[in-house]
């Protein structure tokens, strides 16, 4: 049997994503949670983190979490609580052209409010640019920082990671501001400067 796409590539399929996206009517109403956790694993912090009862009780620890869309306020508490970093919040009602996406971000440097960021998709490809709209830093060592990025509307269900943009100018003047240093900083999110993913392959 051929393994499914998720288990052979680590990237969920379109059907899987569609399955965790609320109906059109709900999407227009305001922020909603997107739980990209598709495999039965022994785990339940998402359920316990939601104070609104929007994540339905798990009958068994290995159950896949299910959302009650009517109860989800899009508060984003669960984004920082999920050990799999598999939860995002999307607000498509933010403005006519832009949406908000809450992304867990455990890297340094943490962008500051207003900073431009590159947006990456589920394969680490650079798909656009956005702005850090709100940054909720986590308390070290336990916390997971969450960055709410402002992104073009059409990327609401695509952008799932970010990289600080225009770092070179921000960091100018620092002793360590060398090309190599930048390269390794980019690599700190595993991404190559070309935006093609963090590969460095030459065919032989």
């Amino acid at each position: 049997m051929k393994p499914d796409m998720l288990m052979s590539t680590g990237v969920p399929s379109k059907q899987q994503i569609d399955g965790v996206t609320p109906p059109e009517s709900r999407r227009k109403q305001g922020p909603f949670v997107v739980i990209e956790c598709f495999q039965e694993i022994p785990c339940d912090p998402c359920y316990h983190s939601c104070r609104f009862g929007a994540i339905k009780p798990l009958e068994s620890l290995n159950d896949i979490p299910q959302v009650d869309w009517d109860r989800c306020t899009g508060c984003g508490i669960c984004v920082a609580a999920c050990p799999g970093l598999a939860i995002f919040v999307v607000d498509e009602a933010f403005s006519d052209t832009e949406c908000l996406i809450a992304i867990p971000y455990e890297f340094v440097p943490l962008p500051e409010k207003g900073d431009p960021v590159y947006l990456l998709d589920r394969e680490g490809r650079r798909v656009g640019q956005g702005v850090a709209h709100r940054v909720v830093p986590g308390r070290k060592p336990q916390g997971t920082p969450v960055v709410w990025v402002r992104a073009p509307n059409e990327l609401s269900m695509e952008a799932r990671h970010l990289l600080p943009a225009e770092k070179a100018s921000k960091k100018a003047g620092q002793a360590s501001d060398k090309a190599a240093d930048q390269a390794s900083d980019k690599a700190s999110a595993g991404e190559s400067l070309t935006g093609k993913g963090g590969m460095n392959c030459v065919s032989r």
């Binding site: 680590g10 694993i41 991404e191």
Partner: peptide, 20 residues
């Protein structure tokens, strides 16, 4: 032919652009 660990861990590194 299949990733051995949890899918969420695999997705996490794919988002960073690490090829599997």
């Amino acid at each position: 032919p299949k990733i051995g660990g949890y899918a969420v861990h695999a997705s996490k590194i794919r988002r960073l652009g690490i090829p599997i």
